[in-house]
Amino acid sequence: MVTSQTPNSQSSQTSPVLEIRNLCQDFGGLRAVNNFNVTLNKGELIGLIGPNGAGKTTVFNLVSGFYQPTFGEIVVNGINTANRKPHQVNALGVARTFQNIRLWNEMTVLDNIRVAQHGQLNYGFFHTIARSRFYQRREQLVESNAMKLLDIFNLKNYAAEYPKNLPYGTQRKLEIARALSGQPRLLLLDEPAAGLNSTDVQELIRLVRWIHSHFDVTIWMIEHHMDVMMELCSRIKVIDFGETIAEGTPDEIRNHPAVITAYLGDDNI
């Protein structure tokens, strides 16, 4: 949580939170991501945009370990994530949300947050059976972490509710809370404003900014709402057909000819 966050090594101070070098991903004959490079320093909040099918979510899937890259390196806090499973990448401090909300709908809101701390339980099967003192301590910690988080996110009233019964905007919020429950150092937000109305979008902007300042976390987000990106991100990367076509501050991106071409098409057509 906010207070218990400790950068665990000195290397994390010096090395960037995330460094991607020459990342390529092939799906059969299709190169979904080509030669992608990015460096996220501690405390940054940057954006990734691109037309539909540009490969944005693929990049997130690669970073979170869901795909193994065809080529290239992903380094999280100085550790290469090659051949690591998603839960191991998560243990390095990478958490994410999903484009289409993927909460565990048949579990209560509280359990959603609790299970997302699975990697930090540190006890095994036999502890659960014996209900050892260690187990009790861990469970209490997980529970109190979860309650604290729900409190911060104003979701405490929903603790015993099932996520499927919550309004859409609240589900989005819960998914972000769940991602934060593992105390990540890098938070990947995959279109957090998708499907939200304008009031909710304004609330989301406030929420992300607030998370960025209160949690010791670096944020990388994909979003189609340009106003969200313009407000929040210090830097935006634009990709199209897997290729990086532009990079810069929101104002630079807004007027970048390659970006306008990618989104609106060429004059010659």
């Binding site: 839960h87 659960t128 059976i129």
Partner: peptide, 28 residues
Amino acid sequence: RYVSSTFGKGVNAICQDEVAAEIMSVNT
């Protein structure tokens, strides 16, 4: 005891969304 622990609730998480479970730190 198994299914009522946070550890064992990982089982239920796998049932409901295995991808989310794996990415959210459950060693599926």
